[in-house]
Design a protein around this nucleic acid. Sequence first.
DNA 1: AAAAATGTTCTCGTTCCGCGTACACATTTG
DNA 2: CAAATGTGTACGCGGAACGAGAACATTTTT
Lengths: 125, 125
Amino acid sequence: MMNLNRLMALRKERNWSLQYVSDQLGMAKSTYAGYESGYRRPSLEAIAAMADLFHTSVDYILGRVDEPGTYTEPPNSQAEKMIDLNHLTNYTLSVDGRVLSEEEIRQFVAFIKTKWELEQPARSK
Amino acid sequence: MMNLNRLMALRKERNWSLQYVSDQLGMAKSTYAGYESGYRRPSLEAIAAMADLFHTSVDYILGRVDEPGTYTEPPNSQAEKMIDLNHLTNYTLSVDGRVLSEEEIRQFVAFIKTKWELEQPARSK
DNA sequence: AAAAATGTTCTCGTTCCGCGTACACATTTG
DNA sequence: CAAATGTGTACGCGGAACGAGAACATTTTT
């Protein structure tokens, strides 16, 4: 399940007590303690307030990103895996759980190529 | 109060229906509709699933940041080589070195789905 | 030593989440 | 045209779980 175990680390890094954090957030000590222990789950507003207090992002508290810094988009976000539809050997494509046949992919490639050609017709002058 | 009015924009940008989104998220249509209207508030796991589906961050849905990007694929324990075109996240498709836009992939998915429907007129729930 | 602070766990009252359902409207199908 | 299907909205209900407070053990401070 989705844990919030990064909360305690964020707090201890700053040497803050449960009482201090819960005071800053305007909630009972036991309430915030429940978040850290996993006994309770914070509301959206509570977790947003925690992200503000710790100067981090909600996604970091949720463990969805690894950078604690408040949301700075790296310009090289194209570090994804590039898959060439002309020679895809190690991958299978699916839609709604159903696998696409090679024929269907070939048809799509042909379709896209024609589409691009039509978009770039003017070679005039 | 904290609004989630970006949800509807994210859905309409993709021309998705409430039924489709709620199916993808595994919840009732009325439940997801409650999120968009502000009638209900999603759990942390629900909003994380929505961020995954819309290929964005929880902070963006919450309105804490303005950039829709910033996303790192969550630990997905599914089959490695199976790529679902509905949730294209950390993959980029290309043909002859040119990258396919998300819109083009969406069009292709829509095309394939209608093709399959025509091939199989039998309907089951 | 006492006193204060800190962290943990429990109960209780109440909020409100999620689902099913029904409805109005739009779109598609026969 | 009407019927059927898709789409968006609103409501009631059962139950999950939230938040606060209190009690307690442990640690730190005075």
